[in-house]
Design a protein around this nucleic acid. Structure first.
Length: 804
DNA sequence: CGAGGCACGTGT
DNA sequence: CACGTGCCTCGC
């Protein structure tokens, strides 16, 4: 086994296969599959993943592995083969698959440097080069480019006087602290204290401290505790009384926050019925996928917790996926509260270093449970006992860049190997999952009632057209405003929901109707009050609002569409006495601000919580008795076959925020399309009826779950090029598929231009096409050249969630 | 992806 | 015929 197969860190078609390397003698036995290594590749050195070991290679002139990057493999055998599976299912490169499974901190960084060659004769070099290397061993390539000496240096490089070296660097270092400990025993210390000169008070204090407690202590801590500096320690170290060592520590994103320990709650009869099949599956070591369908507040989390408990009893591990966890601190609390420090948390709010540390806790088997967002599905457990996906219908489980995987699919694949259950939980399951549950592919478990038999909040739908007709032009209907006032008086809390951040969604001239668009993208600019600028949410273009219409020079420029910022201003005008907390991407971007705002609200420092999507999930405050949805239609008219589903889910979820405890809850939904079934049925909170209606629509239009869909998006700077390439792709795909499949295209993408690139699409609807993957791969291969050159971009998404 | 090779073109 | 520019191919 002196040869290693290595997947190199070059995302390209030609390198998407294993390269063989010799394992040098001194690394024999060290190199194992799943390790990262540094290998020479062409003229440079790059990172690679060892995928296997062997004794022979077809290739005769093997190079040697330069050095290992890990002491232990970062990918176990199961994850390595999961990488193969991912590659096949999403048509991505192997290297992309591996990288997606690891924290970003493990992705290599490269640096190119210039150093004087050993044989170089310093004095014979051009003066300029001599001065460059006067005070330094090496200069980076970037530096050389910047001060324009590159061509000169390159010449010397060809002469052999300068070497170009390639370095692979780690992104994040393990965090270490210096610790101090006594090097002598108690008697030795005591003896020495006697001998110290009388004025050495500080040294004496230190030794006396260690006499009390001889365990190692962090140097910094000792400094502040005894009010000393490093010089005191230094003296004692020199005398051989103290020792110093570096210890690896974990960054702790949760600081010293304490989690109140909780005990398993007694289950209701319904919960018991739901959990039994899951427990059976765990005990019988049988893989199965369960759909836990339960209204908000029906106690799904307790079912998760007790299932995990059962898994831990067997010494196995659990993965819990939650949508963007930083958004649901309450959820983290529940898991940490039940399982304490056996829990690792992985979410986007953590820094790269913190994520890496959490990941290492899993790798070193220091935790048994991981709670995290999408990518936590790749947690390097080796004895997985259960996977739980909460809010199963959330679209954030689908990655929208390569590899375009869905965490649900990965979960089922992994659980299949470990013969353990997957539990999908939701109050409003995705149609796909619910349909599968009906077909018996998943096992349906229902929790139809709220705990403590609380009634669901009453929902009232307000037709905003009616309001307008009767002269109310404000964004609050009279009913909503009255109820807000009522709650303010009663000192109860209110949640207002609007699915749009910023101030206004577009800027329009009232005289000629001209809407100001982004010059690079075919999309309107959004007005941001903060700096009086209009911004493109796709390419980042910014411009100030013009004084006159660029089209007709009229001065009647107005802002249309309402965002959270504008609502906040309006609230201040109408209800100046109300204290409002606004929560959206803009107010929660700073680390920890999300939690801080929620805490403030919970502690009653505000009457109204106003926010976007992010307040729809997980909030569970007893004092909320009124939820207002300011505009239910914002999502409804998006060009997406799932827009009804998303609207229904969102409205139902938001409604669930009201009246979860003793106080009764009320929900007001304002809309311009009260007759739409997704609005109407969310008012009745009738998922089953919605499911039936929506399934009919999907069937007629041949969308999932009746058909699978795949989407090819082509983009190029030239419109005609995009169209013609898409045309060819469409024809080719059509020719490879059966007559039952539908290939639509070329059609312009719903956003036909982003960043000056024209975007065209080909949409494929099919029931069974085993050849489709191969055909799409062929397409990518065929255009590989033009893609690599950067002119053309083709994205292939098998089962897309966003059709834009 | 990034480098070196090489087929051209330009200027001497 | 030397050298620069852009495309192509190769990498174990």
């Amino acid at each position: 086994m002196n040869i290693a197969s290595v997947i190199v860190d070059v995302p390209a078609k030609q390198t998407d296969r294993a390269f063989d390397y010799k394992i040098p003698g001194h690394l024999a036995g060290v190199i194992q599959p799943g390790m990262r290594v540094i290998v020479p590749f062409g003229p440079r050195k790059i990172q690679g993943f060892v995928t296997g070991l062997k004794t022979e290679s077809e290739f005769s002139q093997l190079k040697s592995i330069a050095e290992p990057m890990d002491l232990n493999p970062v990918l176990n055998q199961e994850l390595l083969s999961l990488g193969d599976w991912l590659t096949e299912k999403t048509l991505c490169y192997k290297i992309s698959a591996y990288q997606a499974m690891l924290p970003a901190a493990l992705k290599a960084k490269y640096e190119k440097k210039l150093v004087l060659a050993e044989k170089a004769d310093r004095v014979a070099l051009p003066e300029k080069v001599q001065t460059l290397f006067e005070n330094t061993e090496a200069i980076t390539w970037d530096e050389a480019v910047k001060d324009g000496t590159l061509s000169l240096l390159q010449k010397e490089a060809t002469n052999g006087n300068i070497d170009i070296i390639y370095q692979v660097k780690e992104r994040v270092k393990k965090k270490k602290v210096k610790q101090v400990f006594p090097a002598a025993d108690r008697n030795g210390l005591a003896e020495y204290i006697e001998k110290l000169p009388a004025n050495a008070t500080k040294q004496k204090e230190v030794l006396e401290y260690f006499l009390q407690d001889d365990s190692p202590i962090e140097q910094k801590e000792l400094f502040s505790f005894l009010r000393i500096t490093s010089s005191t320690i230094k003296g004692l170290i020199q005398k051989g009384l103290l020792g110093q060592k570096e210890v690896e520590i974990y960054r702790n994103p949760f600081g010293d926050r304490e989690f109140k320990r909780t005990e398993p709650l007694p289950l209701t009869e319904e919960q018991r019925k739901a959990i039994i099949p899951i427990l059976n599956s765990i005990e019988e070591k049988r893989h199965g996928t369960f759909l836990l369908y339960g209204v908000t507040g029906s106690g799904k989390t307790e079912v998760y917790l007790q299932s995990i408990q059962r898994v831990l009893q067997d010494g196995k591990e659990a993965i819990v996926l939650v949508p963007e966890i930083s958004l649901t601190p309450q959820m983290v609390n529940r898991f940490k509260g039940r399982f304490g420090d056996q829990v690792a948390v992985m979410h986007s709010g953590l820094s790269a270093g913190e994520k890496y540390d959490e990941w290492r806790k899993i790798q070193r088997k220091e935790v048994k449970v991981v709670v995290g967002a999408r990518s936590a599905i790749f947690a390097p457990f080796e004895n997985l006992g259960i996977v739980i996906i909460d809010e199963e219908h959330e679209t954030s489980y689908k990655q929208e860049e390569n590899p375009r995987y869905h965490a649900r699919d990965v979960a089922i694949e992994r659980a299949g190997k470990y013969k353990c259950p997957v539990v999908l939980g939701s109050a409003t399951p995705s149609l796909e999952s619910f349909a599968r549950a009906h077909k018996g592919v998943y096992q349906l478990l229902s929790l139809p009632k709220r705990m403590n038999n609380q009634s669901l909040p009453s929902v009232e739908i307000i037709d905003m057209r009616e309001e307008l007709r009767e002269g109310n032009r404000s964004m609050f209907s009279r009913v909503l405003l009255d109820k807000i006032k009522d709650r303010l008086e009663k000192k109860e809390q209110i949640v207002l929901f609007l699915n749009k951040r910023g101030h206004s969604s577009f800027v329009m001239c009232r005289d000629c109707g001209y809407v100001i668009n982004c010059p690079h993208c075919d999309i309107s600019l959004t007005y941001h009050r903060f700096n009086q600028q209009m911004k493109c949410h796709y390419c980042g273009y910014e411009a100030s609002v013009p004084n006159t219409c660029p089209e007709c020079e009229s001065e009647h420029i107005r802002y249309f569409g309402t965002g959270t910022q504008k609502v906040e201003e309006e609230l201040a005008k109408v209800l100046p006495e109300a204290k409002v907390i606004r929560m959206d991407v803009d107010t929660t971007s700073r680390k920890g601000s999300h939690e801080k705002l929620l805490d403030q609200f919970q502690e009653g420092h505000a009457d109204i919580l106003l926010g976007t999507q992010m307040i729809a999930k997980g909030l569970d405050f007893p004092n909320i008795t009124l939820v207002g949805v300011l505009s239910a239609d914002t999502m409804l008219h998006l060009p997406d076959f799932r827009s009804s589903e998303k609207t229904f889910q969102l409205l139902t979820q938001v409604s669930g925020r009201a009246g979860r405890h003793e106080l009764e809850g009320e929900v007001i939904i304002q809309t311009y399309t009260p007759e739409h079934y997704s609005v109407e049925l969310s008012g009745e909170q009738d998922y089953d009826k919605f499911y039936e209606r929506e399934m009919m629509v999907r069937k007629i239009h041949r969308y999932p779950p009746f058909y699978y869909i795949s989407l090819v998006t082509v983009s190029h700077e030239e419109l005609m090029k995009s169209v013609s390439v898409t045309e060819k792709i469409t024809q080719y795909i059509q020719s490879r598929l059966s007559a039952e499949s539908i290939v639509l295209g070329p059609v312009a993408s719903p956003i036909p231009r982003i960043n000056n690139r024209y975007r065209y699409q080909c949409l494929i609807k099919y029931k069974r096409e085993p050849e489709l993957g191969r055909a799409l791969k062929k397409v990518l291969d065929n255009y590989q050249h033009e893609i690599a050159a950067g002119g053309l971009a083709i994205s292939v998404d098998l089962n897309p969630y966003i059709l834009m």
